[in-house]
Design a protein around this nucleic acid. Sequence first.
DNA 1: CTGTGCAATACCACTTTGCCCCCC
DNA 2: AGGGGGGCTTTGTGGTATTGCACA
Length: 892
Amino acid sequence: MPPFLPRKRFSSEDPPPAKRQAQDPAQPFHIDDSDSDSDSSLSDVPEESADGNITPQAPRASDGDEEEEDDDIDWEDAIDTKTTSATTPTLAVPEIQDLELTLDREETHVSDILDGKKGPSKIERLIRTQTHCMHVQCLLFHNAIRNAWINDKKVHEILRQKLPDSIQKEVKKWRIAAGIEIPERKPEPPKSKKKGKKARKKQDWDEESQRLEPGQPDMSGGDPIIPLLKVLAAYWRKQFRITAPGLRKHGYRSVSSIEAILKEFREGDHDPELHGERIANLEEFRSVAERMQGSRDVGAQLFTALIRALDLEGRLVGSLQPLGFGWTRAEIATPPKTENAEKADSDVEAGGFDSETGSEQVRPKANKGHAQYDKDLPFPIYWTEVASPITHQIIPVDPLVLPNPVATTPDFQAAFEPRGAKAERAKQVICYVLAHSADGTAKDVTTRYLRRRTWPGKTKGFRIPVEKIPQPGRRGQYFEYDWFRRIMRGYERNPDRKTKVDEVEDAGDLQPKQPEKKKATQTADTLQSLRQSTEFVLERFLRREEALRPGAEPVRTFTAGRGAKAKEEPVFRRADVVKCMSAESWHKEGRQIQAGAVPLKRVPIRAVTLIRKREVDELQHETGEKPMQGLYALDQTEFIIPPPIEDGRIPKNDYGNIDCFVPSMVPRGAAHVPLPGTVRICKKLGIDYAEAVTGFEFGSKMAVPVIQGVVVAAENEDLLKDAWRIEAAEKRKREELKAEKRILQTWRKFLFGLRIAERVREEYGGDPDADRERDSHNPFAIRKKHQEVQGSDEGHEGAEDPFEESYNPIDHGGGFLLPGEGDDVDDGLIVEEDHDRTSKGPSAKHLSHDSVGEDEESEGLSPPISIPEPDEDDESGYVPLTRNTRRRRRGG
DNA sequence: CTGTGCAATACCACTTTGCCCCCC
DNA sequence: AGGGGGGCTTTGTGGTATTGCACA
């Protein structure tokens, strides 16, 4: 939304936006930071709130007509039961209806887009982006929960006990080689804390030992952890059985098919093949650890647990597979029909629905026991990163999917990056790769798995890119907004707790490499390479306001097109391109065209305002051709230096004001006082002035000057400023008084209302049940109840509330003014005084900022400091305060 | 397979001096 | 009574970037 500038005149507190502000630089998605505590103990989460293994769902927003009725009912229910404020429901309902319309349209549009008939609209793009962002965050949290489970001591115990002797031996061998144990010692059950390790290490040093250097790692055969990891990975591959489908990206589906899936998910029994694997809580996680079976994903998670059980630093790595935000084929769900036909015997796809009919496909259930899940996914989605305790290097390990399970070199690491036709068919992507550590923190390690560690690489189009927001007022300077980084802020490890491993990888693996420059400059020119070149340019690429410096020589020639269509074009240096502007534009920069300068370029005049348009049309009519204007380069212009003022007289332009676009346009001997309301003061003081035009506003086919204060002679500057300060102080005082009066009136109205209510109750009595019924909609009654429940301990707040039950209404007129009261300062205040006496409430006289400010409900009703005379006298005598009288009063 | 040209689309930047009503 | 301040309103168009597609 462009900044809304209601005023042409800016007050000093309200500086004008620098020229045209960039479109709303606000982030496309608002993320609530409030819960982003990186140290929040994720292990506290008792179970997954929603099954993370549900197949990715299409945006909620594209739900179809059938859902809408439900939505309405939900909303109404919510309003009835949850809303305490009376304003919310009335506001909310029409908004929902608006949304419905949009959604209906969206549905038809999506089908058009899928047919390639139409591009997506802005709102459709937004829905996809939001869906993507939401999905990313859900996946991220899912992984964080799994990571917390992986820390479970019982899971560790289960996995350790399952290790056969041969593996135990390998572990011991490694511990010796790594210098953690000395050979003589019997292998102890590994301690889980590093502290223990260090303590033991020290002990080893102290002890007499046969080994020359017992605590030193043996690096003679490379890092000894690598053979251990290889053994462990081989063991895992052999032992772990893949019995369920894992997470995967399906893409966006038709509403009907999603609804069918949802319906079955809610109503039917849980079918892992259809709804994805479900591990509801830690207990079930322990159970799959015991059985050593599950999806590939769980396999990788349990392997990470095994690594941690062996006292190694292991991270759970997840390559998120979120729904995308683009409109390519990769985002459309592939109907499983063909796949089923292809490999009906081997592959069972989770969520196999015919997107056309929404009916469930006949699945090869007979083969369930032998189904090889996710065989069509050539790359892992979860794996493990192990930190070598010796080198502090990270070694990725994928025991279940890749042919080479232990990725020791960058080449092997790049094998994790999904690529090729098979990955494309399976919709496997790389966009966000996160490593979750044992301490609950997570880290973006995508760079490690990108081929050549070059951004954006394969993440292009699947990961929200860093947004460059131009800084207002500074050309060429950008503020970089990285949505995902902001999301990660809640998960990242505190900078002051960074480990050695962090240090090593931040400087190495995670350091993105600059894309290799495309071989020097002299590779055969293509139109595209020239278009993107920062060094060379073709004349036809020059923008409207760009021109070649006079005398610029072409560097070489470029032949575009082939055969008969071939065309030779000169290639120029970008350095020879200069930016040009019209005389008017230069004027706005405080510069004018030098005498006799010849424009470097002539372009058609762009007229926006009606007047200019008319002028241009007339000219075109006369001459028969488009009127042109000349553009000049910077070196053809000079500063506008207005002549110094004489006798305190300020020169004015045709419109009676002075152009003040830049400070240099203020004449010598004059001063710009950009304060509001200075015109009147100047008139009063009798000094010559001119209103200062600092820019223009455009709207309704008009250009409106923005006026900021005045320009006066320098000798009058202080005089004017002083006068302005005095006036401003007076004005502030007036406003304070006015506000005070308003506040008193509000209090007064409030009290009258209460009196009326009280009197009605007194006179006509009240059925307590009916009262309660009515009170359920009365915000004050609700608040009162709330206080009774909450604050009954001391009654502190309740007692201070002048509208409490204890307030005694007798003899206050019950909403009617008693004789003689009306001409009192404010009858409401008398009540207050009485109240003060009885229940220690704040008396109006003592109402101070603090006493009322404490009461949250009174916000905005800042209390009186002194009591002004009311200037209304219409309330003397018995004047019932009815709606009519109130309206009359408000009306004036 | 890659580069080019075209078309469709979205978004951005440029544009340069009122009018009327109500309150003070 | 009249002067001045504030509210009104969110333009329109050409250029440019981007994307997808057809074709060489």
